[in-house]
Design a binder for these strands. Structure first.
Length: 307
RNA sequence: GGCCAGGUAGCCAAGCAGUAAGGCAACGGUCUGCAAAACCGUUAUGCAUGGGUGCAAUUCCCAUCCUGGCCU
């Protein structure tokens, strides 16, 4: 029973990183980040990447592992995360998967098997010109089954489905899952609306002071287009618009606060439907839950040894 | 004080006789390689107020109140 995994989820600004470090220090763990923006190099302040000093010596994986000029994907994430988890386990440490990107976490713990079809950017660029209705019509012809369940007005998903069919010559395979074969602990951080809004506001102001705008300017200088920054979303989109003088500083700050909150809600929508999540409010509750989780392993070990 | 323009959801705003577009915000949701992305759903028995004319008024007329501009 060597395989253990603790997962920490929760909205933006809820204090996940801090709790992860505490658990790691207490029980001997390493943190594996699950954040679709923190994987990029040079995106530190805006993505809320944990600082070296805040890590308190706990190793952190999957931070700053990709060039922001390239597109990082879930599949790549899953590969890297799985290997980091295994490595940590082999070293006798507990991996703590911690982050706000629900899709990435799901890919790891539920083992979503994504069709082995790489993005075909040429095809995508071509298809992007079509309306959602047209794309849906195309998909319906190619793969009526997939068309039945897909969101018929979401170009991004439609294009991917078409891409899969075109590349494999077969319909989009049914979603397959390979969940982790051992019990995991999923801790969800729950904050009241009032509390979370306050945290988001404070954090936004802190980031501005820490030089978030300058960070975006640096990314631009290093070769990221405005459009790419736009797609990165939230703080990067807002600061990019400010740098282009499309908004005032005040508008930028308001936008970030507002959109961070909207994002936090989207995250909660995702996380709250996971029945495994144990909802906690404080780090001491997190530690208690972790203790219980780990002692269950002890007991089963004893039972095994006792026979 | 006079003249002009305008008062439509929390905000911006279209409609200008036939029974309230759209955007933002808010709230809920989706999730098979861009997921901080992309996408979906819900949200005004009512158009400043009071009268009037019409089969019918947010749309026309009158009065009142409010806002902005110009003039004295």
């Amino acid at each position: 029973m060597e395989n253990k995994l603790i997962v920490i989820v929760g909205p933006n600004a809820s204090g996940k990183s801090d709790i992860a470090v505490r658990i790691a220090l207490r029980f001997g763990g390493e943190v594996i980040s699950a954040d679709s923006r923190q994987v990029y190099k040079g995106m530190d302040i805006g993505s809320g990447k944990i600082k070296k000093s805040e890590m308190k010596g706990v190793p952190h994986h999957l931070l700053s592992v990709a060039n922001p000029k390239s597109v990082f994907t879930v599949t790549r994430y899953r590969k890297l995360a799985m290997s980091a988890i295994k490595k940590t386990q082999k070293a006798g440490k507990i991996p703590i998967l911690c982050g706000g990107t629900g899709f990435y976490i799901q890919a790891v713990i539920d083992g979503i098997i994504i069709p082995q079809v790489k993005p075909d950017w040429k095809l995508r660029r071509k298809l992007e010109k079509f309306s959602a209705d047209k794309l849906f019509a195309i998909l319906k012809k190619l793969d009526p089954n997939r068309a039945k369940n897909i969101e018929s007005k979401n170009p991004r998903r439609l294009i991917r489905a078409i891409e899969i069919v075109k590349s494999t010559g077969k319909p989009v395979p049914k979603l397959k899952k390979e969940p982790l074969p051992y019990p995991i602990l999923v801790l969800g951080i729950k904050k009241s609306e009032k509390e979370l809004k306050k945290l988001i506001e404070r954090r936004t102001e802190k980031r501005i002071r820490a030089g978030m705008v300058a960070e975006t300017a640096r990314l631009k200088k290093s070769g990221l287009s405005w459009q790419k920054l736009e797609e990165l979303g939230l703080e990067y989109r807002a600061t990019a618009r400010f740098l282009q003088k499309k908004t005032t500083r005040e508008q930028m700050i308001e936008t970030i606060k507002k959109e961070d909150w909207q994002y936090a809600k989207r995250q909660m929508t995702w996380f709250k439907k996971d029945p495994r999540a144990r909802w906690i409010k404080t780090s001491s509750q997190a530690i208690k839950s972790t203790q219980k989780y780990l002692s269950a392993f002890q007991e089963s070990n004893h039972r095994v040894n006792g026979r």
